[in-house]
Each structure stands twice: as C-alpha cells, then as structure tokens.
Design a protein around this nucleic acid. Structure first.
Lengths: 361, 361
DNA sequence: AGGCAGGATGATATCGATAACAATCTGAAG
DNA sequence: CTTCAGATTGTTATCGATATCATCCTGCCT
C-alpha cells in the first residue's frame, strides 16, 4: 500500500511517464476539484451553454492548473457529432491540390471541425479504401476530387447519409454537390485563344488513362477543339502514368517533336509538364516561344516566375477548396432538408504569357 | 399523425435521406441479423481474435449485405486507443513538407492508424493551438516540425504522455525523439563545396526571423562558414516574411546585386527562392552561372529540371517522414518503457549542378 | 404574499464499441 | 467413462463525455 507514493516520486525524477499516470485526467476530476458537476464543466467548454461567468472562470482556471484537455472522442460518441470532415485528393505533393486542401482547412477554421485528409494517388481502388477508412470515423461531410468512384464507394457514400461534395470537375452523375469546372471546356478555351493568335499546328502532351479523369477531359477538349477549328487531327501523345512529372514533360516534348517536327505550339496537361518541356527545349538549344511555343494548365506559381513565363489556364484551386467546404457546411446545417444538389461552377481563365508570344517569331 | 409515413415515402422516392434513417446501423443489429452476439461481430473485424472461419464469413456477408461500417470513435473510447497519429508541418504547399507528410502516411499504411495533419503556417502560436486541437483527439503519438514551441505547448505535450518526434532540425532541448539534421552544418557544407571550386564572394538570401528556425539556422551556418574561410563578412539579405516565395527570391537577388555588384555566388534558403532568383537574372539578361552563380537548398524536383539545373543540398524529406513515423511506432509499442530519446540523423548531400558550374566562366 | 419565468446547476441514462471474464462445447488423453 | 485443455462464443461493465429532464434559486409582477 505504501509502495505507490514511492514509485511516483521515483518516476517523476526520471523521464516523463508515458500513459502510466499521465492523461488520466477526466472531466469528472476537474469537476470535483472545482466543486461542481461534470455537466457544468462540459457546459463551460462551450460558449453557448448557460454557465455563470464566475463558474466558468473558476472551471477554466482549474482546467489550466490541472492541465486538462477535453476528450472529443468521448464527446462525439454521446453528442453523435464526430466533428470530422473528410477530404480526399489525388496527391498532396501537387500544389494545385494542396492549395485546395488549404482552402478547405481555412474554411474550417473556427468551426471546430477537424479535417481528415487522405490522398488517393489517382486510384479509384485506393479511394474506395480511404472512403471506408474515413467513414469509420463518422465524418459529418466528405469532399472528393473528381467524379469517378467504384460502385462500392458510391454505395458506402450513399448509405452514410452525409453530404458529399465532388470537386475539380463536373461528374456525369454527381453524387450530391459539385464544386468544379469543365476541364474539357477550359482546355478548349486555351486552344481557341492560341488559334486566334495565329497558331495552326497544335501538339498535346498528356495521358488518357482512367486514372486521371481531369487529364483525360483536358485531352479530349483539346482534340475536339482542334478538330472543330479545322486544324487537322491534333498531335497528342501520352507519356508515362499520370500524373506526368516535369521530367516526363521534357521527354514527351522530345518525342512529339521527333514525330511531328513542324509543330508550332504544344499544350500540356499541366504546368509541371509544360515546365519540363520548356526546360528540355532550352537545354537542346531551342528557343521558346520563337522555335516552339508551349502552354500548360493550372497556373502554378512556377509559371509566372519561369523564364519564359508560361501561358496557362488559371484555376482557382484555393477557391475550390473554400467553396467546397462552405457548401459542405451549408448542407450539414440544413440537415436532411432541401439543399438541392447544386453544381457550383468555379472560374478559370486563359493567362497568356511569354511562352506563347507571337511577336517574337 | 398521419403526415409522417407519407413524408417518409415521399422522401424515399426523391433524394436520399441524410441522417434520417441512414447510418443508424450498429454492431448489435448486425449481430442480431447473423444470430450471434455483438462481441463476436467485434472480434470478426480483427484478424487476431478467435472467431471460427465460418462465423466470420457469415458475419462479413451480413456486414456487406447491410452496408455496415465500423464505428471507430465508439471503439476507441472503450479500447482507449484512438488510432490517431498527429503531425504538424509548417505548410502543406511546400513540397519538401508534403514529401515528409507523404512519408508519414506511407509508413502508417496497414497499421490501421489515421493521420491527423495540421499546418502551422510557421507560427508557434498556431502550433500551440493545433497541438491542443490534436490532443483533444487523443493521438497516440505526435510528429512536429522543428524544435521551437511555446511553453504551454511543451507542457501540454509533456502531460499528454505520448511519444513526440521532432523533425527537420536538431532542437537544443529535444522533447523526446528527433529525426532531422543540422541545417546549419548542411549549409556550411554547401559553402565549403563552392569555396573549394574557387568562389570567394558569397551572397545569401533568406530571412532570420524566429518564424522559420530552419531558415535562420541555414543563414547562421552560412555566415559562420564564410567567416571561418576568411572570406570576409557574408553578404546576407532578408526579404519578406518567411517562407520566401519564388517571386521574393527574384526581388531579393536584384537588391543583393545592387548592393554588392561583384558578388560571385548567391546561396538561397531554399530552391524555390533560388529558382526565382535565377529566372529573374535571366530575365535581366544575366547569365547563370557565367555572370552570377546561384544555389538553393532542399533539392526540389524543380532544381534538377530547371535550365540551368540548380546546385543544392539534397535532403531526404520523404525519409524524414518515414523514419519519424517508424520511430513513433516503435515508441508507441514500447509503451512507457525504455526507448531512450534518441536523435536520428538523416543524411544530406551537396548536389552540384549547372547553376554553379565554374568552367563556363 | 403568491406565482412564475428564466437562469444556473445537478442527476441519470446513453452513445457504440471493447475489455475482461464466464460459459459452453469439442475432442483427445488418461 | 471422465476430465481437461483449447477453441469459440456470450455477458456485463465500462470508456468519458453529453442529452435530457429535474431541481433549485432569484427576482419581478400582480
């Protein structure tokens, strides 16, 4: 019986304990310390609840003194609100998507909601697994990238009964809400802008696999528009597995120019591959845009800084995140009522820069 | 009274319900459906537990048929294991840190652990808030970037009784475990490498505020080494608030060259600012490295692709994440016992590239 | 003086899983 | 035939907070 205090003293002098005696603190103990009930402590942690200012102050002092930290997992069980939002992006290493993630996080600030972030690596199977993993935490809403999901994923989402926001494109069969834009039309706009500058022989770099649906849409937008403008069949080549890296962009432009040496302008599935293509051209002594014009997609930071600066489509990545989160919050508040599944179109615009300047020719 | 069933029917034909009747499914109901106890269902979800293969199969079929999804928040309450790992990085838009985040995520795969990711925006105050928010979810371990934390943050971490891993630098007073390297020595190595190539007049771009401690350490490593080599006082300038962007890198190099026109080589706090500096120089008609040599830090993808390719320090960002997570897992398994607070040094190396080539001069 | 609204606080049941222990069953050993 | 180890399954209490309803008190109105 007397062993315990001795042990305590002993350990307190050494390394801090781990899970031995630390963090055992519960709300009830704080309550006892203050001389109120646990319920009152619970109320003190929320701003809306009715606790006298004086009591709240005493409680918070005790919380501070004892070092108590609220346990949300216990709370969410009884309140039936997990306080989680899930979001899945293809990759967090792609700054377009990390901008979106940041938009989501920022929109969630001060809502008390915690973001559960996952990355699918552009795979629908991985997405399915992640969706299940996320749903096990009972998120109150979920944000996805793109509109292609496995059947099981769709079923799980349906059954979960929480609002879903799909982003970054316009799915053919939206699950619920959508915040995005037509990648096909955006690419089309870029083709037309360059055609109106006098470009005629268009090349394209970017895959077509089901993995990157946005990439495929951009590609088909390119092909369709080149056709519509009567500029012959577009010269499109794929290279590697999406997402295409900078390096692959460089390799791809070489292949493309070998095959169609008279190509005037090359559009790329993203700024990253465009950057790689430009750098490779320069390395080989070609001038951009004098010898070959190159454009990207996404308006990454790199594109405005690069020399030559890169013509691209600016997408409001951050805004997509913010709006998706805002929409989710709306839907969550509305509960099951109304809030029809709307499609929010986000803007995009052509940004003409040095890499496709026509004058220099 | 009769309005309700009508409404129900009505809704079931339209949009799916949200939280009305969905997701009410509990383990007990699955159990009843199969004809076993809830405990058996619970066991069936874990591989180790003893459930006959036949029963498990029947249960899993029922789970599938009913669309049941495990509720981990309930489980973690009774098992006292949240299944969470928390990680805080300065920014997720910086590919160095997102690489680390990916390393952590990958290391966590198949452990059943879920990553809670937060970004501090290089602010210790924001970090403190995030730590509290994370601790409310009772993570089983936490990974931090850097070693400067507020007092309250340190106290909370201490009290939490969970393993902590600090990364990306070597703190003076480590909390617990460390996975990182000396930013000062790494920068020093780069200075010496360039000095041995014959460079004498060194410039530096990068801030010194407490916000970015790694940046400050690199700067002081630079200044110290230049001094040690007898190469006069280093020409260091700050620019903007860390983290320095590509654009600021460009502005900074202009200021630096205005002030010290005969500078031979400019070292930058990161590849991003180095890239901005190089592009700005080229835009102004300067040749890199012939007129001015420039080096970065971090070996971002951009640096090997860029023309000229950028001399830098390669850091194993991904490995830092993996190792930090591995260390955390070790410490978690060990519980409170042993597992001294070790420091794991991660490697770095100078990568000489075109941007500091000497021959061309 | 009585009554009552409304603020502050407390008591108790509960959220949905799991820990811990009990019970049952099977087959093999004695 | 009995016994017992080991495999399988069930029962009950519990994790730590919150929903809900009950209680108490104060002050104001009639």
């Amino acid at each position: 019986m007397k062993a315990e205090p001795v042990k305590d003293e002993d350990e307190s002098k050494g390394r801090r304990l781990k899970g031995v005696d630390a963090q055992k603190l519960t709300m009830a103990e704080v309550a006892k310390y203050v001389g109120v009930s646990a319920m009152t402590v619970s109320r003190a942690f929320r701003q809306d609840a009715s606790v006298s200012e004086e009591t709240r102050k005493r409680i918070m002092e005790a919380v501070d003194a004892l070092g108590y930290v609220l346990d949300l997992s216990a709370g969410s069980l009884s309140s039936r609100r997990s306080g989680f939002i899930a979001a899945l992006v293809p990759s967090i290493n792609n700054s377009n998507f990390s901008d979106t993630a940041r938009g989501i996080t920022d929109a969630l600030e001060n809502t008390g909601l915690q973001l559960l972030l996952g990355y699918t690596d552009y795979s629908a199977e991985k997405e399915e697994k992640l969706i299940e993993a996320m749903l096990r935490r009972r998120p109150e809403g979920i944000i996805l990238t793109g509109g292609s999901h496995t059947d099981r994923a769709r079923r799980m989402l349906d059954k979960a009964g929480i609002p879903v926001v799909e982003t970054w494109e316009i799915p053919e069969e939206p699950i619920n809400h959508v915040v995005g834009f037509s990648n096909s039309e955006a690419m089309s706009l870029l083709v037309r802008a360059l055609a109106s500058q006098g470009y005629r022989r268009f090349g394209y770099i970017g895959g077509t696999t089901a993995r990157d649906t946005r990439g495929s849409q951009r590609r088909s937008g390119f092909l369709k528009t080149v056709e519509e403008l009567g500029l012959g069949p577009g010269r499109a080549i794929s290279f590697g597995v999406p997402p295409i890296t900078m390096e692959q962009g460089g390799q791809a432009v070489v292949s493309l120019l070998e095959r169609w040496p008279d190509t005037e302008v090359v559009l790329c599935v993203s700024d990253l591959s465009a950057f790689g293509a430009i750098m490779e051209c320069k390395r080989r002594g070609m001038r951009v845009p004098e010898d070959i014009a190159i454009a990207g997609f996404g308006d990454y930071e790199i594109s405005s800084i690069c020399h030559p600066s890169i013509t691209t489509i600016n997408v409001d990545c951050y805004g997509i995140g913010r709006q998706a989160a805002a929409k989710l919050l709306d839907a969550m508040q509305a509960g099951g009522e109304a809030t029809g599944d709307e499609i929010t179109l986000t803007g995009y615009r052509v940004v003409l820069r040095e890499s496709t300047e026509r004058g220099a020719r």
